[in-house]
Design a protein around this nucleic acid. Structure first.
Lengths: 200, 200
DNA sequence: TACGTATATGACAACCCTGTCATATGCCGA
DNA sequence: TCGGCATATGACAGGGTTGTCATATACGTA
């Protein structure tokens, strides 16, 4: 948690620091991110930084919290009804995420880099936050009971497939800003997931 | 390529350096690996290192070449016959990899860490080597013609699914060195890929 | 033995990084 | 105006990294 001193700062200054942090954390993994770079970019002195935050972890947590706040207030949580099956719910969710990725590419990149950081701190962090995929898992279980999904499939594996492919799509977005040909790909993925690829 | 001086060295000394390099490259990504650590472990001086190799890249390339030599001489390349379909071929490939991983855990870890390194050097390196996934793609195409795989599925998407899940498994292995529960997971993945999860 | 070549060495400069701390400046109320 | 508190600063120490280079030692041959 940032210090009282930090919150006493003027909003422009706070935003300057926040932006600098976002920029750094979106370009390097947490473990490689440099406080030096951040203070330079934010135009504050090294000493000041340690008067605002106890260290890099503190700042990172603050950035994540702020991003989370904005995301919650921005995203309209997708409502799932009973006659909407898992597949369409997933597609809707993906569309939400893709929209968010287009709107806030830096935030998305921070999230992505977090995925590829093996530091102790990041491991602990991701372990704490229960992700959105948990809700999706529940949908699979529900559809199993409703007779829409084969009860013998491993729900976790399905989530793993979707989660990792999602990561792949995000990577693609960041590389080449175009996301028009992405939705067809997701639809292709859903098609394969739904019916498999083998001829029986 | 290492210098003439390096190859003039006694075999024990060469092996000592090689082992130290393997150990370092198996515990940190290439970009994070430290020459200091390697020379310390190998018991040679910093100056000597630069008399053997032009730099870290040179050493890394040498290590990869040596590993490649050993792999080629050790692994019996898996032969794919016509009556063996894509799924069993894929499973066989995974089993080969797992066997190799058990035999040479450090080499496998080097290969895994390479996947998660975004440095320029590693990007160029992996771009050069045509990967095993290309061959797998050909198998899918073949099975489409043989009427084993639905011709309307996107082969690239199938490869993407396998590749990204593979990446995920790698990550899990790196985090907690256990690879015993991997095969069941891969089998579950194949099951889903084969027949899908929906009830029609 | 003596000399030239091959090999080994670690100090060095240069460049990163972090966290601290004595000092300086700003601000506000008495 | 003056004191006291809040805030800002950058030099500093200590740690890491890399690549170089003058020097020292070993080795082999004449």
């Amino acid at each position: 948690m940032p210090t009282k001193t930090f919150f006493n700062l003027s909003e422009p200054k706070r935003k300057r620091i926040f932006s600098a942090a976002v920029e750094e954390f979106a370009s390097r993994r947490f473990s490689e991110a440099s406080i030096n770079q951040i203070v330079k970019e934010a135009g504050i002195s090294r000493g000041s930084f340690y008067q605002y935050f106890t260290g890099k972890e503190d700042l990172y947590l603050y950035v994540l919290t702020e991003i989370g706040k904005e995301k919650i207030s921005a995203a309209v949580p997708h409502q799932v009804s009973d006659n909407e099956d898992f597949f369409t719910a997933y597609l809707a969710m993906i569309k939400d995420i893709l929209a968010w990725a287009r709107e806030r590419p830096l935030y998305t990149k921070i999230w992505m880099l977090m995925e590829f950081d093996d530091s102790e701190f990041i491991a602990k962090l991701t372990a704490q936050f229960p992700n959105a995929w948990g809700r999706l898992r529940e949908l699979i279980e529900r559809d199993k009971k409703l007779g829409r999904i084969r009860p013998d499939v491993n729900s976790d594996m399905v989530i793993q497939i979707l989660y990792n492919l999602n990561l792949h799509f995000q990577k693609a977005i960041i590389r080449r800003g175009n996301l028009d040909d992405l939705l067809p790909q997701v639809e292709e993925l859903v098609k394969i997931l739904r019916g498999g690829i083998a001829i029986v």
